[in-house]
C-alpha cells in the first residue's frame, strides 16, 4: 500500500489554496452541510467546503453519470444524428473511501466491452479528492474488506487538528499538491495523529456482516428461495430510492425528447432502477420480475453476487446509503445477515 502513496503535510491555508487553484481551471464539487445534512454541491469558494465525516445521503455518482444526460442530438427534417459528449474539467472533493471504491467499479462497468464515451470522457477530466470519514450506524464497509483506499483517487486528505496529511494517488494529484498546497514532509507526531484517527475509525463501526466478503456470493446463491424476499417485498414501496442513492447502481433508460418545434431533439439517458415496476417488462406485456420481492432479490443479488463474476468484485461498497434512504427501513446489512444465518442452518 505504501509504495505508491506519498504522505505529505499541508496546512489549512494550503488546502484552501489547492481548492482555489482548482476553481480557476474547473468546476469543483465539494461536501457541504445542506439543511444540516451532508451533501455534495458545486462550490465557488474554498470556505464553502466542509469535509463532513458522515456519509452524504446522495452519492457523488451524478457528477460522473448524471441523472439526465444527452447522448445524441437529432434533426428530424434533415435526418441527421450527432453524437454528444458532455464533459468538462471538474474536481470532486470530500469523497469517502466507499465513494472512491464505487467510482472504481463504475469505471469498470463503463469501460468493459463497448467504451461508454460519455462516462469515460467525463471521468477522464475529473480529479478525485478523498477525505476521512467516520461511520454512522448504517456504514459497514469494514465488513466488506477495507475501511480505507490506497488507490483510485488523485489526492486523499486526512484531517488533523490543524492541517492535513495528504496522500497522492496519481501524478496529477502530486503536481496539484506541489503547485498549490505548499507541502512538507509530515512530522512523526503528525503521523502518529493519523494512526490515532485510523484506529478510532476502525473501532467505530456498529453495523457488521456476520460472514467474510468472499463468502457472500455463495450465500446469496443459496438464498433464492429464502422467505426473506417475500417479507421485505411485502413492505417495499417500489420507490427506487435505493437505486437512486446507490453509488454503484448504473442502470439507465434511454428516451427521445423532442423540442416544441417537433423537429429537433435529443436522445437522453436517465437513471433507471431495477426496483421500479416496469424495469423488466417487454413489449408484449410479459414481466420477468413481476413482484417487488423478485425485484428486491434482483437488486440485492446484483450487489453481492450477479456482477461478481463479470467484474471480479462485489458491487456493494458498504456505504449504507440504501438503508439510510429506505422509507420502510429495509436494511441491506441486516437482510444480508439474515441470509447468512439461514445459510448456516442449511
Amino acid at each position: 500500500m505504501e509504495e505508491n502513496a506519498q504522505y505529505l503535510y499541508i496546512t489549512d491555508r494550503g488546502f484552501k489554496a489547492l481548492v482555489k487553484g482548482l476553481l480557476k481551471e474547473r468546476r469543483v464539487y465539494g461536501t457541504v452541510r445542506k439543511d444540516g445534512f451532508p451533501a455534495f454541491k458545486e462550490i465557488s469558494g474554498a470556505e464553502e467546503i466542509e469535509l463532513v465525516q458522515t456519509p452524504t445521503h446522495l452519492s457523488a455518482k451524478e457528477f460522473l453519470f448524471p441523472q439526465r444526460e444527452v447522448l445524441l442530438k437529432f434533426d428530424i427534417k434533415d435526418n441527421t444524428h450527432e453524437a454528444v459528449v458532455e464533459a468538462g474539467d471538474q474536481a470532486i472533493i470530500g469523497l469517502h473511501p466507499c465513494d472512491i471504491r464505487a467510482i472504481g467499479l463504475m469505471d469498470r462497468v463503463f469501460s468493459c466491452g463497448a467504451q461508454d464515451v460519455n462516462y469515460l470522457a467525463r471521468r477522464g477530466r475529473t480529479i478525485l479528492i478523498g477525505s476521512d470519514c467516520m461511520p454512522d450506524r448504517y456504514c459497514f464497509c469494514k465488513s466488506l474488506g477495507d475501511t480505507d483506499v490506497d488507490s483510485g483517487f488523485d489526492i486523499f486528505l486526512h484531517r488533523l487538528k490543524t492541517g492535513f496529511i495528504a496522500r497522492t494517488g496519481t501524478e496529477v494529484g502530486a503536481d496539484l499538491i506541489r503547485k498549490f498546497a505548499g507541502p512538507r514532509m509530515p512530522s512523526p507526531r503528525e503521523l502518529t495523529e493519523l494512526e490515532g484517527l485510523r484506529t478510532r475509525r476502525e473501532g467505530s463501526f456498529t453495523a457488521t456482516l456476520e460472514a467474510p466478503p468472499e463468502a457472500l456470493p455463495g450465500i446469496y446463491a443459496m438464498s433464492d428461495e429464502s422467505p426473506v424476499w417475500e417479507r421485505i417485498g411485502s413492505i417495499c414501496y417500489g420507490c427506487g430510492s435505493c437505486n437512486n442513492v446507490c453509488p454503484t447502481c448504473y442502470c439507465f433508460d434511454v428516451r427521445d425528447e423532442v423540442r416544441a418545434n417537433l423537429n429537433d431533439g435529443e436522445r437522453v439517458r436517465t437513471w433507471d432502477g431495477c426496483t421500479l415496476d416496469d424495469f423488466a417488462r417487454v413489449s408484449g406485456g410479459h414481466d420477468f420480475r413481476k413482484t417487488r420481492a423478485a425485484r428486491l432479490k434482483h437488486r440485492f443479488n446484483r450487489k453481492f453476487r450477479y456482477l461478481s463474476g463479470r467484474f471480479d468484485s462485489l458491487f456493494c461498497v458498504g456505504c449504507g446509503r440504501c438503508s439510510r434512504a429506505c422509507l420502510v427501513r429495509i436494511n441491506i446489512a441486516e437482510v444480508t445477515n439474515e441470509l447468512i444465518r439461514e445459510s448456516y442452518k442449511k
Binding site: 462497468v109 463503463f110 468493459c112 466491452g113 463497448a114 461508454d116 448504473y250 442502470c251 439507465f252 433508460d253 434511454v254 439517458r269 433507471d272 431495477c274 424495469f279 423488466a280 434482483h298 446484483r302 450477479y306
Partner: peptide, 8 residues
C-alpha cells in the same frame, strides 16, 4: 452494450 441493465 451490456450496460443499461434491463436485459440482465
Amino acid at each position: 452494450l451490456g450496460k443499461c441493465g434491463h436485459c440482465q
